[in-house]
Amino acid sequence: MNDIDPRDNRRGQEDTAVLSELNRLVDEIDPPPADLLDRVKFAIALEDLDVEVARWERAGSFAGVRGGQTGTITFTVDNLTLMVNFTSTGSRHRIDGWLVPAGEHTVEVRVADHQSSTTKADDGGRFVLADVPTGTTQILVHLVNSRGEPGRTVVTPTIML
């Protein structure tokens, strides 16, 4: 590691000082959101560790969903697309979803500090969960193959509903 800073000492000390000022500034100005740790811990507290993460496709506006309003989010991973529409029903939510390609996969909705809600998509890939509590939410899709045998599990990052 001694090839790192071949310049003279004084200069090196000044650099170290500037860098530690910078370190402090970055932390002060741009700290992680206060609830991020809890959200990460919730997101990874899964039974099955062998999960694939679906990514949120952010075409156009997505801010509405963060605000707890009605909105549609699309997640994708490999060849699976998961579209979910959230409708607020007061303190709870209705979730209408659609999986492409279709399959009778099990869909699990985890909400922090609540029991999971589970349903099964129909042969068109559609599913409905009519009464989901509000909070930090994560969707899991337990895929089945054409013979109905369980396969991989796809998870989303958490959404604030």
Partner: peptide, 27 residues
């Protein structure tokens, strides 16, 4: 978080990336 932010992601997107990275570590 800071690596994600250093890549120019806004705070909301950076939050998702942080979660995705930890889920990838699980795997």
């Amino acid at each position: 978080w800071h690596v994600a932010r250093g890549q120019g992601l806004d705070r909301n997107v950076a939050e998702d990336v942080v979660q995705t990275v930890w889920l990838a570590l699980l795997r």
